[in-house]
């Protein structure tokens, strides 16, 4: 399973990363959370507003406000 959090490093992007890591931990999944901060790469993934969440190559969330922890779990599980 491949999870990516995309954001150039704003406060919300860091919060998003923590949220996703927490969700993965609570779900007891064995998955690496990768953080992508390069703006060109973020654009390449088709993210238009940050922070973005990509699970197995599909955009599951982009922009503000951030999803809740439960919602993040749903977004991750939906692809599992």
């Amino acid at each position: 399973m491949e999870i990516k959090v995309l954001g150039p490093g704003c406060a919300n992007c860091r919060k998003m990363e923590e949220l996703v890591k927490l969700a993965v931990k609570e779900l007891g999944m064995d998955a690496e959370v990768e953080k992508i901060t390069d703006i060109g790469q973020i654009a390449m993934y088709g993210i238009l507003s940050t922070p973005g969440l990509i699970v197995n190559g599909r955009i599951r969330h982009s922009g503000k406000p951030l999803p809740t922890l439960d919602k993040v779990k749903e977004l991750i599980r939906g692809e599992a």
């Binding site: 654009a43 390449m44 993934y45 088709g46 955009i59 969330h61 982009s62 977004l75």
Partner: peptide, 24 residues
């Protein structure tokens, strides 16, 4: 820059999700 076509669509939102989003 060429975007990867794979990551095309966001998950569809139910109306309840929109209300939650609006409240947040």
């Amino acid at each position: 820059i060429k975007t990867t076509g794979a990551a095309a669509d966001l998950a569809r939102q139910a109306f309840k999700d929109r209300m939650v989003y609006a409240r947040e």
